[in-house]
Design a protein around this nucleic acid. Structure first.
Lengths: 335, 335
DNA sequence: TTGAAAGCGCTAACAC
DNA sequence: GTGTTAGCGCTTTCAA
């Protein structure tokens, strides 16, 4: 293995018998350089496998051609992003960013500490920030948004929000879900999810609103704080069942929680949807693959990612942008 | 929104009444600077929210403190990485890389063209490459590995492989799966997967080997090229069923394909596992959440990611490394 | 049309 | 101990 030294622009310049200025201009497609020479230099670079060093270029130009996708993990103690929703979002964002000729820097912030956002910005590693989920960092986001423009957040519409946000109308989505369950004749509807997470909190608001509108009294025993991912959501339902709480429906704050619940119900000998109806939230890919296929509230991830990236690039160009909250959609499948 | 100018080291130096050299040394924890002064400078930087500009630092130091996670998409026409296996791998790698104080640059290569790997290297955006999946780039990887050290690939053990690889013994895994099915008394075992993908090809080898060892004649009609992700895998099984091919078991090259198959079987009125047994490959998170829970071949993603990152850092430090192929494990659940 | 030279923000060899 | 200075690889102003 002979580590061959990397080429620099000066090498190409020497080979071509011109200065680095000329190479730089030629590679940038500058029409000051006559086309034949330009093409000769471009061909030479290609043949030698030379590409401009982005680190040096970035320092000079004061930009990085990179977007930082950040996942703050304030609630989730476990180190992993295991929720497929986050993972799919990362994939979609990466597609959109790549499409625009930018690179993706992926950052997970395990325990957001004072100044974490400032730090990321000062590091000068990206031209803009895409934050997936507000976690428990609503105030930190507000504080930074006043002084730093190129920032777009995926999340819910919280009061006093001053940062540009893309998301779904969580309250409306939850209402859709619970109204559907009520329409099915269900009355004992459990809510599974950690309400401290902003979006889950909004979904719980929608749940409570729909119950009230349906004339159903809220039973606090039917709310179980389930984690966003991992195994613990199994325990949520198991806890309810072992406590002897009767229920005929479950509204879960995420599809993963819903799938866990279905499994726990099945293990307890309850049939879905005959004995208990279940509705999830997200319409993650696996919701379609589970059996029975999961009824859920669809968030259009593809569109969400596109909106986020569009807004971010607008903001990078100094434009002001509004937030976008998309209408959620009930996808009735078989649970 | 007042875009406040970013601080540079010179600003901190002025505030502290010292030179930038001193600040640089202090921030680096250099003991040449007396501890009180060092602490004063560190405190000042913290108070001002100053962090060293990584772009400038990287140029000077000739390193980026960044690992490039690359996903070559040679087979899959669709732009998305939708297979949860890839997505989970990205998450795990990100965890391991972050743990070591490095950043993650995520790159998807949609249609790998001549010289794509050289280009990534010449871009100088990372200190090492982690390639997820060989796709159809075995030769390109071999070619580059001779001259570029810090490169580790997730994939199968192909002949003539010269690059450092981490993966699972795909042949053994497939054998495990098919032996299990044979042990269940199954004889008409279908194989679902695109054999052009290297790992799938190896899994098919194991499938054929196990059939032979079990004294079962191979029926070519039972091999259906199913895509790695997306909906098309549904069609695979549907095609078989509509063609009137009888089968009593399915070995799928991935869990996603297996889940699609289960759904197609259910829609055709066939019960899993009563009428048809199904075994997947990967043990992706959702394999546990599906109902019935999927029997599958487990690849230890956590360990795999750890091995890849460890090997990569060893190689960054100039060490030679061996490849690692882990023993797969049959996880018997209910299909 | 092309090249020389300055400078992006940082680190470290060298001088004091 | 601390500061001066050179230079990492590039782009672009300025001069020719």
């Amino acid at each position: 293995m002979t580590a061959k030294p990397r080429l620099k622009m000066a090498d190409i310049a020497r080979m071509a018998g011109v200065s680095t200025s000329t190479v730089s201009r030629a590679l940038a497609g500058n029409t000051l350089i006559p086309q034949p020479l330009r093409e000769r230099i471009v061909a030479l670079a290609l043949a030698e496998g030379y590409v401009v060093n982005q680190q040096a270029r970035g320092l000079r130009l004061q930009r990085t051609q990179t977007i930082n996708v950040v996942i703050p993990l304030g609630h989730d103690a476990d180190q992993m992003i295991s929720d497929p929703f986050f993972l799919e979002m990362v994939g979609r964002l990466a597609d959109e960013i790549t499409l625009r000729g930018y690179e993706v820097l992926l950052t997970k912030v395990l325990a957001p500490t004072q100044g974490w956002l400032d730090r990321i910005i000062q590091l000068n590693r990206s031209d803009g920030l895409l934050i997936i989920g507000q976690s428990n960092q609503h105030q930190a986001l507000n504080a930074v948004a006043d002084a730093y423009g190129p920032l777009v957040v995926w999340g819910g519409d919280l009061p006093d929000r001053r940062y540009c946000t893309v998301g779904v109308d969580n309250v409306a989505g939850a209402r859709l879900a619970v109204e559907h369950l009520i329409g099915l004749g269900r009355r004992r509807i459990a809510f599974l999810g950690l309400p401290e997470a902003p979006e889950v909190g909004l979904r719980r608001q929608g749940y409570l609103g729909a119950l009230e509108a349906g004339g159903i009294a809220v039973d606090p025993a039917l709310t179980v704080p389930a984690h966003f991912s991992g195994e613990p959501e199994l325990e949520g339902i198991q806890y309810l069942l072992s406590a002897g709480v009767s229920l005929d429906a479950v509204f879960a704050a995420s599809d993963v929680i819903a799938l866990g619940a279905i499994r726990a119900l099945a293990e307890a000998g309850l049939r879905v949807p005959e004995d208990v109806s279940v509705v999830g939230f997200d319409d993650v890919t696996v919701a379609r693959y589970s059996w029975p296929p999961l009824t859920t509230i669809r968030q259009d991830l593809g569109r969400g990612a596109r909106e986020m990236v569009n807004l971010l690039f607008a903001r990078i160009n100094g434009q002001a942008t509004d937030s976008v909250f998309m209408a959620p959609e009930l996808v009735v499948r078989q649970t």
